[in-house]
Design a protein around this nucleic acid. Structure first.
Length: 394
RNA sequence: GCCCCCAUCGUCUAACGGUCAGGACACCACUCUUUCAAGGUGGGAACAGGAGUUCGAUUCUCCUUGGGGGCACCA
């Protein structure tokens, strides 16, 4: 297929806009063949064709501009997603194809270009449906065969209105900075306005290509649901190995100044990714685990400590003593801590939770034995010692 | 105002005349558990309304209502 970038954001230069779109596609893992063709580079051709229509009496001059004469009668086509759509020529006004400065208008330029490039399929948002009869009239006037037109539904914001800056992100690439994985974004977007039929949700690119058909395209606009995107992102985060996540997480690590070695970062990613919804979440948790300066007690943790400050300290001191001589593997750590709970005659959570708080600053984390392992022996013992000797707040 | 498109749970959707209208997100229980997620089990939640066609309409037709898009010397 040939991609035509039809909507230029007035707030950005054309070059920048083009780059944003191509970068977005690249990020999504969608590539293309050949080089982009710019409408502006085909000025002479557009003028030539407009002059021809003028000479044939199919257009006329008005105040220096060339205006196409729209024939009356039915203009219909079999849309690839909507089926039959029909307009009456009488309802459409003659429209300018070449401005008085002899530059072409969109509806004319695209038709000339698509004919010259022998485009077979024109797939675009259904906000272009009303441009289609104008373009078809042009194809007819130029004696060219029609391509297949397919108008896919728009994606709207939560208020049902056209997606705009107001709704947050306007370019797919923006989601990259929000910690969304390209594979998740691609999967989520594919499911907006299209369905493979049945109950399929999580699909690879190849599966989506296999399953694709025009029949599965919805005719109704979809609403962008950020919550579901994050859910899907979480699914991908869980399923993707830490090694593959590393390049996507590390840019988000930079602001935290995390300087841990690659292996330590990988261990931390592996430990926290199943509890994360975005790579931003992952990075934040990795930072806390690898660099104690990012450790902060959250509200729930403070409350938990306040319930029984003495018990909290005692548990940490006991753990410290027990852990000092323990082999630093997840299985050995778990065994030792469970044994400790039994020795002290308390529920396992009474020993696990204080350690969790001391090491992560929160009441929620991966299993404590993994947390200890990820933070590392020396750093973990130091955090326990610091927490145990800390004066109890409030 | 005129033209066009659209209409299933709150949201994304399945269904292509006969289903207890299915799944997913979100929500609520329960379960699992070292916390939280994840997972598992269960629950509430939809065919916009009205006429037809048909033995039978969510499904086909028409109307109404509602939503969206377009009517530039923008793209």
């Amino acid at each position: 297929m040939l991609l035509r970038i039809e909507d230029t954001d007035k707030a950005r230069s054309t070059d920048e806009h083009t780059r944003v779109i191509l970068d977005g596609l690249t990020w999504l893992g969608l590539d293309w063949d050949g080089e982009p063709v710019f409408q502006g580079a085909r000025l002479a051709r557009h003028q030539e064709v407009a002059d021809r229509l003028l000479a044939e009496g199919k257009a006329h001059v008005e105040e220096g501009a060339i205006r196409f004469r729209l024939p009356s009668g039915e203009i219909a086509w079999d849309d690839a997603v909507h089926g039959g759509i029909s307009f009456q020529g009488e309802d459409i006004k003659d429209f300018v194809i070449l401005r008085s400065d002899r530059t072409p208008i969109y509806n004319f330029a695209v038709v000339v270009d698509d004919i010259d490039m022998q485009i077979t399929h024109v797939l675009r948002g259904d906000d272009h449906i009303s441009n289609t009869p104008k373009q078809i009239a042009l194809y007819r006037a130029l004696g060219a065969p029609l391509p297949v037109f397919g108008h896919v539904p728009m994606i709207n914001g939560s208020d049902g209105k056209k997606l705009s800056k107001r709704h947050g992100a306007t370019a797919v690439g923006d989601y990259q900075h929000m910690g969304i994985l390209p594979a998740a974004m691609r999967n989520f977007l594919a499911l907006l306005g299209w369905s493979p039929g049945g109950d399929r949700e999580i699909m690879t690119l190849d599966e989506m290509i296999q399953l694709f058909s025009f029949g599965g395209i919805q005719q109704k606009a979809a609403i962008f649901d950020m919550t579901k995107l994050e859910w899907m992102n979480g699914q991908y985060l869980s399923a993707t190995p830490a090694e593959a996540l590393y390049p996507l997480v590390s840019p988000h690590l930079a602001p935290y100044g995390v300087r841990g070695d690659r292996e330590a970062i990988l261990r931390a990613i592996a430990a926290v990714k199943t509890r994360s919804r975005t790579t931003l979440d992952v990075a934040r948790q990795v930072a806390v685990r690898l660099d104690a300066t990012h450790l902060r007690l959250d509200e729930k943790a403070k409350k938990e400590i306040a319930k029984d400050p003495a018990g909290y300290k005692a548990a940490l001191e006991a753990s410290l003593a027990a852990l000092a001589g323990t082999e630093w593997t997840t299985t050995a750590l778990e065994q030792r801590l469970r044994a400790l709970a039994e020795e002290r005659g308390v529920a396992a959570s009474k020993v696990f939770q204080p350690i969790r708080i001391a090491l992560s600053g929160g009441t929620v984390s991966e299993p404590v034995n993994e947390l200890l392992y990820v933070v590392g022996r020396d750093a973990a013992l130091k955090r326990l010692r610091d927490a145990a000797s800390m004066s109890i707040p409030g």
